[in-house]
């Protein structure tokens, strides 16, 4: 991706992408994720929130673009970096915050935590935090959907690092030979933890490798353009529902925060980081909306303020939620 240093690039307006409510909804959801992540980072660094965190600032367009193309009864698998996927798939800020605070009202009763957020009723399997682990699982969800003769679709989110795992090859291959309704979404943010893709791949064009190797349609998309992601996901979903899956989407994006905890990202060159910061997906989409006359700068600011207010209110609630009792230690092991 050639990112311009200066102005954020425009987004790929699609023919039918002019419904203002829909577009503003995409924007608001991305802002909700950003505010959530920034807020959580503060709470974590202040020592108010327990555990560890892996965040997705800068990658909001991938989660929102893909999940907006899904129905509630479609399923996603996610990773240790799953807050954005959860919010995009319809989990509430409150149930996520409660989970991160370890409360019994959390989406996984406080037993999952940051790396395992999920809600089956919303179509999200708790995050699978072993790299690549969710890829065959998503193929399995899709196998079930196919055997049950439904038109539901499974999506597996994973990073560029997962491409080196055996689970990736095995899962994608099985989905391919069985035409499963599953979309493999590789969020290529250039780094597996601190290691740049060029150190672990001879050919860093993941979509080309997958398309050439597994006999499935594989596409590389500007992952910081929420509409481009949405349109690609919509097409992929339709292909899967029609029985012609799987599909592979490589979404080029960038992590504007540390891999985890207090990672200062010294491995990201300043130049590179600045280029990608200029192509921040929220910044880009906001500017594009303003340019189209759908909203003005004050309107964008109002969205942010509203979302932040809601987040802060949810934090107040989360800190007072009941914690599990020690009796809960041994429940939920077996059905």
């Amino acid at each position: 991706m050639t990112a311009s240093h200066s102005a954020p690039r425009d987004i790929a307006w699609a023919a039918n992408s002019d419904a203002p409510g829909f577009l503003l909804g995409l924007y608001e959801r991305m802002v909700m994720i950003r505010e959530f992540e920034d807020g959580v980072k503060f709470l974590f660094l202040e020592g108010i929130m327990p555990g560890t965190i892996h965040q997705c600032q800068g990658q909001e367009a991938t989660a929102v673009g893909v999940c907006t193309a899904l129905r509630t009864d479609d399923f996603i698998t996610s990773t240790f970096r799953g807050h954005g996927h959860a919010l995009a798939k319809g989990l509430s800020v409150q149930e996520l915050l409660d989970e991160l605070f370890g409360a019994s009202t959390g989406c996984c009763k406080g037993k999952g935590g940051s790396m395992h957020v999920g809600n089956m009723a919303q179509g999200m399997v708790p995050g699978i935090a072993i790299v690549g682990g969710g890829i065959p699982v998503a193929a399995g969800l899709a196998l079930a959907f196919k055997m049950q003769r439904t038109d539901r679709v499974a999506v597996s989110f994973f990073g560029d690092g997962a491409v080196a795992e055996g689970a990736f090859h095995e899962g994608v291959n099985m989905a391919a030979i069985w035409n499963l309704p599953v979309i493999f979404v590789c969020e290529n943010n250039l780094y597996g933890a601190s290691t740049h893709v060029s150190r672990v791949m001879r050919d860093t064009h993941v979509a080309r490798r997958v398309g050439g190797s597994y006999g499935i349609r594989a596409e590389q998309i500007d992952g910081n353009d929420v509409l481009a992601v949405y349109e690609a996901a919509k097409t992929a979903v339709a292909q899967c529902r029609a029985g012609n899956g799987p599909v592979f989407l490589e979404l080029l994006t960038y992590r504007l925060t540390g891999h985890s905890r207090r990672d200062p990202c010294h491995y990201q060159p300043k130049e590179e980081r600045e280029e990608w910061t200029a192509q921040d997906p929220i910044l880009r989409f906001g500017a594009a909306l303003v340019k189209r006359g759908l909203i003005d700068d004050a309107g964008l600011e109002a969205v942010k303020s509203r979302v932040r207010r809601d987040f802060e209110a949810a934090v107040q609630v989360a800190q007072r939620q009941p914690l599990p009792t020690t009796n809960d230690l041994t429940t939920d092991v077996f059905a």
Binding site: T77, V137, A139, G140, L141, A142, A144, A154, E170
Partner: peptide, 10 residues
């Protein structure tokens, strides 16, 4: 992994 996903999906 496929079996795991299928079991989760009913």
């Amino acid at each position: 992994g496929v079996a795991c996903g299928a079991a989760m999906a009913g």
